[in-house]
Amino acid sequence: MKDFLTRTQTAPPPIPFLWYGIMIALVLLSIYGSFKYHSNPRFVKLFKWIQIVQLIALYTWYFGFRIPFANSLPLYHCRLAMFAVVFLPDKWRSKQYFALMGASGAVFALGYPVFDPYDFPHITSFSFLIGHYALLVNSLVYLLNHYDKTLLKKYMIVAYTFILNLFLVAVNQVTGGNYGLLKSPPFVPNAPLWLKYLLVSLILSLALVLFDELFKRRWKKLVPVYQRADT
């Protein structure tokens, strides 16, 4: 238990090919389960509580062990989405924005996992895995149940992303953190800061717009069905 909660950093744990294959299989299973059971209240409540317990455990460790603000603030893209999807009201524009971010971000995070530098098993690695699977399910469930194409325009998604990332750049400058991977993105770690900001913002905006378009097309197919049912 001491090693599980240690604050002594080492290196990110390696991921054997077999375990990486299991991680990807669980991504597909999470997506399948979200589409199949998104209308099941018990399924919806279960994954919300999994997310809540994961966040409580992680932030209890952060604050209990006085982890520096460079790592412990809830300002990573997926971390923001976790809080938003669980706690914000369903009709808020910002919740739909972060649900799109959560769905796309969880897929990318689990497809290209970047663990904290602690030996496995550790609370951060467990939180990373459990948190991102729960985020994927919760985001998809919300979008499947509550997506509304009138809430967000594409230009809003892009504008929100660039504004959010600009804020995170400022936070990184103050704390020394790497929130949003904006200080040291894996694909251009040595580029100038303005180029990192531009590339990360463009890639994230593209992913969000793509996911928004997918759910917009699904919404257009469903609306006539509901309209016919009402008449």
Rank of each mutant, 00 (worst) to 15 (best):
D3H: 14
A134Y: 01
Y62G: 02
H77Y: 10
F83W: 14
A134D: 07
I157F: 01
S34H: 02
L129I: 15
R7A: 07
I67N: 06
A99R: 03
H122G: 12
M1W: 09
L135W: 09
L73H: 03
A106T: 04
N172H: 05
A57V: 15
V27H: 03
P41E: 05
Y160G: 03
A103H: 00
N172E: 06
S127F: 08
W219E: 14
A103D: 00
I123C: 12
S34G: 07
V158T: 12
L29P: 06
T175D: 12
P121F: 14
W92G: 00
I203P: 02
R228K: 13
Q51G: 14
L73Q: 03
L135C: 08
V174H: 11
V158D: 01
Q227F: 12
L136R: 00
Y147T: 01
L136P: 00
R217H: 06
Y142S: 07
L73M: 10
L199N: 07
I67T: 12
V225M: 11
N71A: 13
W19F: 14
A11G: 09
L202V: 15
Y179N: 00
F83G: 09
Q173E: 15
L73S: 04
T10W: 09
R218I: 14
H146Q: 15
M82D: 13
F63W: 15
A134L: 04
L73W: 02
Q54K: 12
F63S: 12
L164H: 08
Q54I: 12
P16C: 08
F17H: 11
V169L: 11
W92H: 02
Q51S: 15
F98E: 10
K149R: 13
T150Y: 03
P186M: 02
F69I: 07
N71T: 07
L143M: 09
L206Q: 05
W194N: 02
L26E: 10
E213D: 06
L144S: 00
L88W: 13
V86S: 09
P192M: 12
R217L: 09
W19E: 15
Y133V: 01
S125M: 13
A207F: 06
S205Y: 03
V171A: 04
R42Q: 14
Y32I: 09
L75R: 02
P185L: 02
P68F: 03
I31N: 04
G105K: 01
F17I: 15
H38G: 00
Y155A: 00
V174P: 05
L204D: 06
L135P: 00
K149V: 11
F83M: 07
K36G: 01
V137A: 08
L164Q: 13
N178F: 08
S201D: 07
T60L: 15
V53L: 13
F211R: 00
M23C: 11
F162K: 05
A109T: 10
H77C: 08
E213N: 07
F162L: 09
P13D: 08
N145P: 00
L164M: 13
Y197G: 01
G180C: 07
P192C: 07
P12G: 10
P117G: 10
K36E: 04
L151E: 04
K48V: 06
